[in-house]
Amino acid sequence: MSLLEVQRLFVRYPTERGPAQALDGVSLSIGQGEVVGLVGESGCGKTTLAKAVLGILGSGEAEGVIRFRGQDLLGLGADAVRREIRGRAITFVPQDPFGSLHPLYRVGDQIADLMAWKAPDTAPPSRLQERLALFTRRRRPAHRDAAIAMLRDVQIPNPEQALAKLPSELSGGQRQRLTIAMALLPQPELILADEPTTALDVTIQAQVLRLLHNLVREKGVSLLFTTHDLGVASEICDRIVVMYAGQEAEVAPTRSFFAAPRHPYTAALLQSLPNEQGVLRDIPGSIPPLVNPPGGCRFHPRCPNASARCAAERPPPVEVAPGHWLRCWHPVAA
C-alpha cells in the first residue's frame, strides 16, 4: 500500500477575476521509501500540491482525497494535521532556507526548540503548552550531543561551532543542509522538498543532492521532490510526475520517462532543454490562465496532436507500460 495517496484533488484559489483552478483533479501516490519527482513549469501546481498535503493552502479550498497512512488528511481537520502530522510524520524542506530559519536565534537554540517539540518521543503539545511556549524558551543542554550528531549526519563542518552561529553566518549550502537535518529530526515518514537546490550553485547542489539521496535511502523515508530542473529530477527520483497547468500529464519511472516520453507536453519540454546539438525548440504559445482555463486537457491549445476531443474531455489515466501512466488521447509514439 502506498504511504501517500492523492485522489482527484481539486484546489481553487479565490482571485479578483474569479476562482483560479490551481489543481484540476490530480491523482498521485508515493510508496514507502520512494522518491517521487514533481516537475513542471511555473504555475503548473507542483507547489500547490505540496502545500495541500501539508495543509497550508491558505485561502485555497481543497476538495478530493489526500490519504496518508490510510488516514484522510482533508477529513482530519486543519488543527489536527498541524498538531499531529505536519512537522512530525510529514516534514518540509523549503527552497529558501532563510525563510524557515529564525534569523536571530542561534542554530543550536533552534535545534533544541525543535527537539523539545518535535522529537519522535515527544507527544504533541497540548493547547496550553503551545500558548505557554510563547512566553518561555526551553533549552535542553542534554540534547547538545544529539544536535552535534545531527549536524554531523548532514556533513556540516565543525558542528560544535556551527551550533553557536546565526543562520546568516552559515553558507547557503550549509543552511540547506541544516534545514534537511531539521526535516529529518522528527523521523518523518514523508519529506516534501520544494525546489531545495534551486538557490544553490551547481557544485553545492551536487553535494546536497547526494546527501539527500543517501539520507533518504538510509532512513527509508519517502520523498516528494518538486523541481523545475529535469536534470536534478533525473538524479534523485525513482518516479517522475509531470504537471501542466494544474493537471498531471504523465507519471513514469525515471528511466522510461526520459527514454520514452509519451505525452506531447513531456516530449516538447525535453526538446526545449539545452542540448549538445545546439538546436533550440520552444513550445509555441504560453501557459494558460488558471482562471477560466481551457477545457479538457489544458495543454490542447499548444499541442501539435490536439483534436476536438482534447478540448471537450479530459483523458483518463492509462497505463501504457508497467508503472507508466499517461493522460492523453493522442500520445507520442513510443
Partner: peptide, 14 residues
C-alpha cells in the same frame, strides 16, 4: 563544475 551539472535522463552527479 562540469561534473556537477545534472543531465536529464542520466544519474551522473550523485
Amino acid at each position: 563544475l562540469l561534473d556537477a551539472v545534472p543531465e536529464p535522463g542520466e544519474r551522473r552527479v550523485i
